[in-house]
Structure formats: C-alpha cells, structure tokens
C-alpha cells in the first residue's frame, strides 16, 4: 500500500434543508479494497456521486490522486453505478466500442477475457440480458480500465450467490496492485473477506473507519455482525 488516492475533508452536502452528508472525512490508500457500508439512505450513493463528479455544490475538500474533482479526476476513476445505463437496443459490441472510444485506458482484450468467464457474447443485445448479466457486463467494463480508482456502487446486489463468487474472483484476479477499489454494498457477509478496511456511514456521518482484521481481532466479531449491531432498528 502506498500513497493516498482519495482524501475527503469536512465534506457536507444538503439537498434543500435535508443534510445528507455531515462533516465526512476519510482517506483511502492506494492498492487497497475498501468497503463503504451503510443502510439504504445513509448517504453512500451521494458520497459516491460526489467522488465521481456527478454531484457538485458541496462544502469541504475532496481530492482524488491529489486533484480536485473535475475532468482530470474522471480520467482516473472507473465507476460502476447502481443502475445500468445502456440503451436497450445496443449490442455488447456497441458498448465495447463506446468504451474504447471514451477511455484511453480501456483494455479491450481484458474485457473480452472477463466477458468470456461470464459467458457474455459480443453479439448479445442489452435488451435480452437479465439483471444479473447486465451487472456482470458492467463489471467487466469497469474492471477493464487501468484506472487508479474503481468505484463499485451496490455491487452484487442483483446476482445470485454463485455468481457473487465469480464476481469476487474476477475482482481479485483483475485488480492491479496500484489500484484502489471502493465498494458500496449492504451484502456484507458475502464480500467482507476481500476488504482491507471498511467505512461505516450512518445518517450521513462516518461512524467507523478501520482495518477489517483489526476489527475482527478487537471485537471477535465479523464485519457483518458488527454492521447488524450498529444499524439495529
């Protein structure tokens, strides 16, 4: 692990009079896999949208690879949103050529390799894909960019347990040591073994930021158990 890739200091964001992020500060080291964990409506997606430049107009300092959010940082961030964004009429190969045009760091061959693993064919139409297949296809695209930061929002939400294994395997197989992966999810039990550290976000504030192995040795609990306790209704 090396330099800081993400650095957020005193981030506040409101929609109207509802404050959705409250004095959020954290850093992510290069070469680590970080879980961003919180229940629905805790501010995960808002935070991610700020990191990826989709939401502007906030207070505080947000830096990716030392740069303020903008065109430059979009080049360094590969983003998997929580909803598919392809047009139904497209074929897989259309999307591939868009990615190849848009991102100079897109590794076409790697993408084909991952797609093969997921049994996705270049001639498939987006329209005929199941929710899970769309998710896998998007993951293949996102993991095929040599981006410094990979942000995965609601990963594995739409796929069955067997496919989750393949997805985690794909991430471990394909991420490079200089890449940082930020994964927002609430399916913690399935995925916690691949994290370096986790951030718990509750009502817009960070309530825990620690290394997962430290958490396990300190609390004798799994991350999943700890989450269930922290966010008990």
């Amino acid at each position: 692990m090396s330099d800081t890739i993400v650095s957020v200091t005193g981030l506040n964001k409101s929609f109207g009079n509802k404050q959705v992020l409250k004095d959020v500060s954290f850093t992510c080291k290069g070469g680590s896999i970080i879980g961003l964990l919180g229940p629905n409506g805790s501010g995960k997606t808002t935070l991610i949208k700020i990191l990826t430049g989709l939401i502007t107009g906030y207070e505080g300092k947000v830096r990716i690879n030392g740069q303020p959010i903008g065109v430059k940082t979009k080049e360094t961030v590969s983003f998997l949103p929580d909803e598919p964004y392809f047009a139904d009429w497209m074929r897989v190969k259309d999307v591939l050529s868009i990615f190849a045009d848009l991102y100079h760091d897109f590794d076409y061959l790697r993408c084909l390799e991952i797609m093969q693993r997921f049994q996705i064919d270049e001639n498939m139409r987006i329209k005929t894909m199941s929710k899970g297949t769309k998710e896998k296809f998007q993951l293949a695209l996102v993991m095929s960019r040599h981006a410094k930061l990979i942000v995965l929002d609601e990963l594995i939400g739409g796929v069955d347990p067997a496919a989750r294994e393949v997805i985690l395997d794909t991430i471990l197989n394909n991420y490079r040591e200089d890449q940082t992966i930020l994964i927002a999810t609430h399916l913690i039990a399935d995925i916690e073994r691949i994290f370096d550290s986790v951030l718990f976000i509750k009502d817009g504030a960070i309530v825990l930021d620690d290394n997962v192995e430290e958490i396990r040795s300190k609390t004798k609990k799994s991350i999943d158990e700890l989450f269930r306790e922290e966010f008990k209704y």
Binding site: S32, D169, L172, E177, R193, I194, F195, D196, E213
Partner: peptide, 10 residues
C-alpha cells in the same frame, strides 16, 4: 489471494 478468495494484503 485468488485461491483463498481473500484480499492480497491479507
């Protein structure tokens, strides 16, 4: 890491 299915740092 791949065969155990865990983080390489672990």
């Amino acid at each position: 890491a791949v065969s155990y299915g865990v983080n390489p740092n672990t």
